[in-house]
Structure formats: structure tokens, C-alpha cells
């Protein structure tokens, strides 16, 4: 009984690092290691759909990345996403057809698309975040990124689990 009771606070403490805190930090790094064709002074990081980050993504606001200043935007309008540099897509329910539709709607815009829904990199999201052995990992769809004139650095490609 003693062991059982004392385990509860122990586990919750060790698990204090929320996956989205780490994922927000990943997004910051993706911004640093990506180049966009435009000259804007602002780097617009958009959350499309339900916001899973909370305050952790707001910490990116005002940070510098390659001479641009990051601005975090939460939006439900896919039209607005077209004007973003980075779009974290969080569509609920995470259905393939809904993602396919959102991607079609922003086709042609130079948006680095990111999502942590399962399998989305396979059909056109540029960076897919996933949990692998309790750690955050990512896949890159380089083909789609290149088509959108977005240059993902060699470093990111090297650290990605899967590149296609």
C-alpha cells in the first residue's frame, strides 16, 4: 500500500513535461532551419483549428528567427492560413479527408505545414510530429515542401526519422 500511494506523485512529477511544450520548441526550431521565398519582417506562426499548445506557443511571440520576428496567430479561417509562414494544422476529427481538403485550400501558398495527426505526412503535410519511444520525433515530406518553394535545411532533413 505504501508503495502504491507514493508512486502517484512520483509519476506525475516525472511526467511534467507536456508533449506540446516540447512540440512548441520544435516549431521554433523548424522556423530557424527553414527559408521562405518572401522578404517579410514578420514570421507568422499559425495554429489552425483547436489550439493544443496553450501558453507554451505564446513564448515564441517576439522571438527572432533569421532576422524575422515571430508572431503567433490562432485562426479558424483557412484563407488566413495562406498568409502564414508556418501552419500547425489541428483538425478534429483527425480524418484524412479533412486534412486533404485543408491542404488543397492552401495549395500554392508558401506555407510550411505541420501536424501531429497520424499518417498525414504521407498525403501532403510537410512536417509530421509524432511520439516515438516517448520522445518527440518528426517526419518530413521534402517533395511537397520543395514544390511550395520552401527550403528545409539539411540539418532538419538529417534529424528527421523519415524523409520522402
Amino acid at each position: 500500500m505504501l508503495g502504491l500511494v507514493s508512486q502517484i506523485p512520483a509519476l506525475s512529477l516525472a511526467n511534467n513535461i507536456n508533449e506540446y511544450t516540447i512540440k512548441a520548441a520544435f516549431i521554433y526550431n523548424f522556423a530557424r532551419f527553414t527559408e521562405w521565398p518572401d522578404e517579410s519582417k514578420e514570421l507568422r506562426v499559425c495554429i489552425y483549428g483547436k489550439d493544443p499548445f496553450g501558453a507554451s506557443i505564446d513564448k515564441l511571440n517576439g522571438k527572432q528567427s533569421n532576422g524575422r520576428i515571430i508572431k503567433v496567430i490562432r485562426t479558424r479561417s483557412i484563407e488566413e492560413v495562406k498568409s502564414c509562414h508556418i501552419a500547425f494544422l489541428n483538425i478534429i476529427p483527425p480524418e484524412r479527408r479533412l486534412y486533404a481538403r485543408a491542404l488543397r485550400d492552401i495549395e500554392g501558398a508558401n506555407v510550411l505545414t505541420i501536424s501531429d495527426a497520424e499518417g498525414v505526412v504521407g498525403f501532403g503535410v510537410m512536417i509530421g510530429l509524432k511520439i516515438d519511444n516517448d520522445k518527440v520525433a518528426f517526419d518530413v515530406n521534402h517533395t511537397v515542401a520543395k514544390a511550395s518553394e520552401i527550403e528545409i535545411s539539411a540539418k532538419l532533413l538529417r534529424l528527421a526519422k523519415v524523409v520522402n
Binding site: N18, E19, A24, K59, L60, K135, L159
Partner: peptide, 26 residues
């Protein structure tokens, strides 16, 4: 502290806690 100060390599090593692994795909 500010987790964004960590590099990708460092981030890749952190064990996280996720609640989103349970929902079932249709």
C-alpha cells in the same frame, strides 16, 4: 526555463508525456 533555447538534438532526447495516444482511429 525557456525550452526554446534547446536545440533540436536536445529536444529529440526529452521524454514527454502524451494524453493523445488513446483515441481510436475509425
Amino acid at each position: 526555463g525557456d525550452i526554446t533555447e534547446l536545440s533540436i538534438e536536445q529536444l529529440l532526447d526529452i521524454e514527454v508525456f502524451t494524453s493523445s495516444r488513446f483515441p481510436q482511429k475509425a
